[in-house]
C-alpha cells in the first residue's frame, strides 16, 4: 500500500497518524503540512489519520515573490 508524499509514492504498511508519518519522514523544520489538499494545523497532527492513497504535501519557506 502507498500514499503520495510531495508527489511521489511512499510505502504505507498500515494506516497511521500524521504524527507517526512525520516522525518517519523527519522533515527539517520549519515546515507545514497539507493532507489531501487540506491544510493540517500543527495541533492536529496527532488526530489526522493517514490512509492508503492519501496525499501529503510538506512545504518549507523558499525564495520567491
Amino acid at each position: 500500500m502507498f500514499l503520495i508524499v510531495n508527489g511521489k509514492p511512499h510505502p504505507l504498511p498500515e494506516p497511521l497518524m500524521l504524527t507517526e508519518l512525520l516522525h518517519s519522514l523527519s522533515p527539517m523544520a520549519p515546515f507545514a503540512v497539507a493532507h489531501n489538499e487540506e491544510f493540517v494545523p500543527r495541533g492536529a497532527y496527532d488526530t489526522c489519520r493517514i490512509s492508503p492513497g492519501d496525499r501529503i504535501d510538506i512545504v518549507f519557506p523558499t525564495a520567491g515573490g
Binding site: 510531495n6 511521489k8 520549519p30 518549507f60 519557506p61 523558499t62 520567491g64
Partner: peptide, 24 residues
C-alpha cells in the same frame, strides 16, 4: 516587507530551507 514563497521539501535534499529561514 520581504515577499517569500513555499515549496515542497524533497526527501533527502540538502536544501531544507534552513539557510533561507535563518536569513529571514
Amino acid at each position: 516587507m520581504l515577499t517569500v514563497s513555499l515549496r515542497r521539501q524533497l526527501a533527502g535534499s540538502k536544501d531544507s530551507g534552513q539557510c533561507f529561514w535563518n536569513l529571514l
